[in-house]
Design a protein around this nucleic acid. Structure first.
Lengths: 174, 174
DNA sequence: TCGGTAATAGACCGGTCTGTATAGTAAAAC
DNA sequence: GTTTTACTATACAGACCGGTCTATTACCGA
């Protein structure tokens, strides 16, 4: 159920996703939801965000450790994100951003969960590029590229960021 | 009415904003809305996005033209965006992103409106940095920084991007 | 003064939302 | 074998959703 909720939140956002839809898609009745998540929709979102954030963190870590060169590793991560976006008809972007933008303002627990996910990604990137500020910029560029690619329905924002990773990480360009 | 709708969409997103709320805050009855916007909520969102996009484009253009050095000009733009974010209790980020993420998937007209706004910004930036790809990366970094800053409720993502503008635009760093 | 139009005002509709209450079931505990 | 616990299943409640309808007011040229 958490997995289907995370998927739906990612694709449609918090308010656009009804509990009935989560239940129908997950094949569970309503009573079960409120037994396992007495906090209701808010708790469901918090845990779904945490789950999605951890999943992506693990995947990102695997990619980053697969290549000692952070530029090459991040390039590969962006390629994977792009492939996923394409595969889901440009719906599966960042699993956190959608919820962050339309629920974080009204629910402090949800905001904190999104913040925690982003921070864990940033720390991970920082560990490989060596600098917190640079890691933040890289993360911002990735998040922005996902947003733009999703809106444009094409991958050029992601490839553009890939092409500029070197400059971003302080390599002498070209 | 368009202005209040744009504000609410920006702060809360598409689905979280009820028409009743728009009407109450704008002081108009429901009949008027459907007289001026027979397309209903969707049309309202399209026009609100277009309005907000054009407003920001004009503001951005003014800033970019105020300084011949694109790095300095973009730095100033980011400072303004940050000030605005702070002033609105970290609610007033990108006026397009919120709607783009939770309505673009289900409404093609809304998606197209968001796309148009982003494209107009990108073209504007490209005219000052001289390269489409670089402009896209700058825009992505700004959008991502706004998203992260809003979620974290602090301005470091924006300042981090400001500090890396030089590297992003191909200047030899430091 | 008189139509006629532009726009407002708000009641109202079916549907859906989140959340609750209650009934039922399956398996473990004793 | 009965009781307790853990969980499922469904019906239902109240609020609110976007959208439609009719009535009414403001305005304007003739």
């Amino acid at each position: 159920m958490l997995r289907t909720a995370a998927d739906l939140f990612r694709n449609q956002g918090y308010h656009a996703t009804g509990l009935n839809q989560v239940l129908a898609e997950g094949g569970a009745p309503k009573g079960s939801l409120y037994f396992h998540f007495p906090g209701g929709k808010e708790q469901l979102a918090v845990e779904a965000v945490a789950l999605a954030g951890e999943n992506l963190r693990v995947a990102l870590q695997a990619v980053l450790e697969s290549d000692p060169d952070p530029v090459a590793a991040l390039d590969q991560a962006l390629e994977l994100l792009g492939a996923n976006l394409e595969r889901t008809d440009y719906r599966g972007g960042c699993p956190i951003a959608t919820v962050a933008l339309d629920a974080a303002a009204e629910s402090e627990p949800i905001r904190a969960a999104c913040d925690a996910a982003y921070s864990s990604w940033q720390r991970l990137i920082a560990a490989h590029v060596g600098d917190d500020g640079t890691a933040m910029v890289v993360l911002a560029a990735i998040e922005g590229a996902l947003l733009l690619a999703r809106t444009r329905r094409d991958l050029t924002p992601l490839t553009d960021v890939r092409n500029h990773l070197g400059a971003l990480l302080g390599r002498t360009p070209r």
